[in-house]
Design a protein around this nucleic acid. Structure first.
Lengths: 338, 338
DNA sequence: TTGTACGCGTTATCAA
DNA sequence: TTGATAACGCGTACAA
């Protein structure tokens, strides 16, 4: 039931070399032989064996996404899902496929990436969840593994990346809160050391400068591990009474949902008393109540760009890094009417 | 930088056959030669080439998950994310890897699965999002593609599946609503034809029988396409005033979130006026307000079982289908105090 | 323009 | 217990 290139050759009455040439539309073949071959492929339902292809060409069409065991809950974040969806849309209809490697290594260990590449399970990798000066990058370079980074973890940007404009994001979120009268904006940022956290903080500070507001470092809080809803809930819960604030900027909608719940549970009116701005604009943002004002990132587009950039690199085409614009989506959580 | 088995053999002073034997701990080898080989592997940092392995053995360690282009948003559902996470946890530390194939075919087209299998990109597939009497199943059987089904789409269960007890789920959800005084429970079910929808309806009907409540077919609504939050919102919105109901059972937390929002937007108090029960118990269920009473499915466990079952099948071991228990998690959305 | 023949890295068969 | 070697399906250098 599984035909090989030989069967096609025999059926078409040509040599395997010719079949190969037609299938990889290389070299010259007459229209007639091309037609004969394609007809044979069709009748047999021939499907090329990618293992053989990969072995022969030393090239794999697997797009690697390595996920460390200890942070596998990352998969469940709406941001990540949407990102993968974007990659999928780019890869759809191509011969490339997404390979998720679940490693037992810790998140900053590159060996799983390397192994997957050497095994030819993947032909390149997407590096996400990157830290400042991520140590994995130089290693990938050293071993010549094609890769693309989601985010910008270092200043000497000597690698390909796709990112959204986090500085602008942090800025417009904070600005919006200032504009509606906030003076002391609590900033629940992502984990310290994460590149996105740094850029967003930058934007937050910029907005302060622009509006002539003094920065109070006590208002800047980093979540310990990765951002999730519980963090948002607990941080706000414990901040109430401890720190004075009249607005909240949360680095992630999921967390913001938790923050809002904490306010509500404390009898504080979201919007009227304390406005809240999130980040990402994932689907739940428009379904929670109050609906969430947030910084919209084109996550799907970032995923698409990551995939196409990586494929380009894998094929030796030159590609360029991209930074995507963000925008503020104003909803109920910053409405003073609420 | 990429060593082959030959290099290992040369370094260890043995033949490639011996190296292969050691690496696949087949056959007999003396402790001494085994040690020599392993040492050589270690020093060279040898990593086997899976393409070659796959070519030779006609076996692929890719666990296939085919996603149709037209329903790719499925990826973003919390249920799916958690499911993948479960699979990942089982696969972590093994040589198997998850392969997501984005197809351009429609969802009931099996050809992408077949192609991925014939290409040896995957060695088996997970079939999810199945319909009653899914036509893909007999085809997979015919072509001897190892597979496992998530759900139970047909009565002659002549295939391996993992599922949760949807009948019980539908039953305990409805029962709970009856117990707190509801008489007319609006049931927003998944799409018609989906196997899970059928089982949950079954449970819904059973509860009616048990409590001696007449079933009003007008109260049973199927979402058109796949369940999402908007469906929940719009269905409830348009039902208010049209149909009399005093409780809602929604087949999915995401949709339930939409349903709750619709009630709130209409000035109806969730819980006190109209209690709502969801399904799944995804993370947002405990973060929305009111928090959501829901049927908890062990989604991650289902994912784990799907992966391990498929690996068993791929290796010719015999495996058994599994049905996972569900339970009711009572929260605020069914509290009369709310 | 087309065909022959080799080799990619691995496993399995057969001899030794 | 170990080694030599054929074969898996494919692409390509070289020959025709």
């Amino acid at each position: 039931m599984n035909f090989s290139i030989k069967d096609v050759a025999r059926t078409a009455g040509v040599s395997v070399a010719t079949v190969s040439r037609v299938l990889n539309n290389s070299d010259k073949v007459t229209e007639e032989t091309r037609w004969k071959v394609l007809r044979a492929v069709e009748t047999l339902g021939y499907v090329p064996n990618y293992s053989a292809k990969s072995l022969r060409t030393n090239f794999s069409r697997g797009i690697g996404l390595v996920i460390s065991h200890d942070v596998d809950y990352f998969i469940t974040f709406p941001y990540f899902s949407e990102f993968i969806r974007g990659m999928g849309q780019t890869l759809s209809g191509t011969d490339y496929h997404l390979v998720m490697v679940m490693s037992t290594d810790s998140r900053d260990d590159i060996s799983s990436h390397l192994r997957a590449f050497e095994r030819k399970v993947v032909g390149g990798v997407v590096l996400f969840d990157v830290m400042d000066n991520d140590k994995r990058i130089p290693v990938l370079k050293k071993y010549k593994v094609p890769f693309v980074v989601v985010g910008r973890p270092s200043l000497d940007e000597d690698y390909l990346y796709v990112d959204s404009d986090n500085v602008k994001g942090g800025m417009i979120a904070t600005e919006h809160l200032f504009k509606i009268g906030c003076k002391r904006v609590l900033f629940i940022n992502g984990p310290k050391g994460h590149s996105a956290s740094r850029y967003r903080l930058n934007g937050y500070l910029k907005a302060h400068k622009k509006f002539g507001v003094q920065v109070d470092k006590k208002l800047i809080i980093y979540v310990k591990s990765d951002s999730d809803m519980k963090n948002g809930y607990e941080i706000v819960k414990s901040s109430i009474g401890q720190i004075k604030f009249d607005g909240i900027f949360v680095s992630g909608d999921f967390m913001a949902t938790g923050a809002i719940k904490a306010l509500k549970d404390s009898g504080i009116r979201v919007g009227r008393d304390i406005p809240v701005v999130g980040f990402d604009d994932v689907p739940i943002a428009s379904m929670v109540s109050p609906t969430l004002t947030t910084v919209k990132q084109p996550i799907k587009d970032i995923g698409k760009a990551a995939a196409s950039t990586l494929v380009d690199v894998m094929n030796g085409r030159n590609a360029t890094s991209k930074v995507f614009d963000v925008s503020l989506v104003i909803r109920q959580s910053t409405s003073r009417e609420g």
